[in-house]
């Protein structure tokens, strides 16, 4: 895993490629096009790019109106503003009427780094999960990010895409086919099942390698689509492994741990250990320092697997 690319980078490039293929794609941003990488699209298709200024709620409303006219709007800003400030709009004007808007939000989670708690969204997956008609996708690397952009355009209805600021390891090979709604078994195993999403997938792989050295074979399952959840794979691996660990760069409430626990409590009740942010806000610091401080590391996953 030598190469590192930020998923937001892959988003920007994929968006431009998508724009070349599909004229219905329009892109709206809220004064962060350089950071969210929608500027790549804006440069290629200035007539289909609309800066909405620092007005996230109205950007979201306008996207709803454009979708009602047959466009496929991708709207972008930081995840914390793009799911929080405009929540009412996403709920009432996009999800309720099931309009075809793609919410592609970047700078999610702690890996935003130095900007601190105001800019670190740790609740966005919870907010989006709770909305009927919403699909929630958290790509694990740049390859998946690219695939997810194209997949989102094919899905009829609202999609939330969660991207990161930080450069993270590329896990999948060139040409990886992203299938929405399908969990991906990256490494098989029988002793423990580690379900991970986003930047935590590569850490889960590190953890599994370390565990393997100690004779513990952990399966690593990438849950890149949180909603709808691939329940069958989750149940199969819980049955097979018995020990279940979840890993996410998100609050322990309402994200990956919640959906997996909910599924297993109904279908196959087992203990589920969470590697997640424990009901606290973040703070300023380097991305790696923060991941360490808030216990989102391969080492923590190893500890969780051994804690049963």
């Amino acid at each position: 895993m030598a190469e590192k690319i930020a998923t937001r980078e892959a988003y920007g490039n994929a968006l431009k490629a998508l724009g070349e293929k599909n004229e219905k794609i329009v892109v709206l941003d809220a004064d962060l096009s350089g950071s969210t990488k929608t500027a790549v699209f804006a440069k290629a298709f200035p007539e289909r790019f609309f800066d909405c200024g620092i007005a996230e709620a109205n950007m979201t409303s306008m996207a709803a109106g454009m979708a009602a006219c047959g466009k496929i709007p991708f709207i972008s800003t930081f995840a914390v503003f793009g799911t929080g400030r405009n929540y009412d709009v996403i709920r009432s004007s996009i999800c309720y009427p099931k309009l075809n808007v793609k919410l592609a939000m970047t700078h999610a989670g702690l890996t935003v780094g130095e900007d601190g708690a105001t800019h670190q969204s740790l609740e966005d997956i919870a907010l989006m999960n709770a909305l009927p008609n919403m699909t929630v996708i958290v790509p694990a690397d740049a390859m998946q990010a690219e695939g997810a952009v194209f997949a989102a355009a094919e899905i009829e209805g609202p999609v939330y895409l969660r991207f990161s600021r930080a450069k993270t390891p590329v896990i999948y090979p060139e040409g990886h086919r992203f299938i929405p709604g399908k969990a991906d078994i990256i490494k098989d195993g029988k002793d423990a099942a580690i379900f991970a999403c986003g930047v935590m997938v590569s850490k889960a792989m590190e953890a599994a390698a370390a565990l393997s050295n100690e004779g513990i074979e952990a399966a690593v399952i990438n849950i890149s689509t949180i909603k709808p959840l691939d329940r069958q794979t989750v149940i199969t691996y819980a049955r097979k492994c018995g020990r279940v660990v979840t890993a996410e760069e998100h609050s322990v409430f309402g994200g990956l741990n919640s959906v997996i626990s909910q599924c297993l409590s109904e279908e196959y009740p087992v203990k589920v250990k969470a590697v997640a942010v424990k009901d606290v806000f973040g703070q300023s610091g380097k991305a790696d320092e923060l991941m360490e401080y808030y216990a989102l590391t391969a080492g923590e996953i190893v500890k969780a697997v051994k804690s049963f």
């Binding site: 329009v26 709803a64 979708a67 006219c69 009432s92 004007s93």
Partner: peptide
Amino acid sequence: VEMTTGSLGLGIGAAVGMALSAKS
């Protein structure tokens, strides 16, 4: 019904989006 409304202050933004769509 051209737009789902009810939460005040949102219909106008969607209407502006429609006008922008038509204009562009």
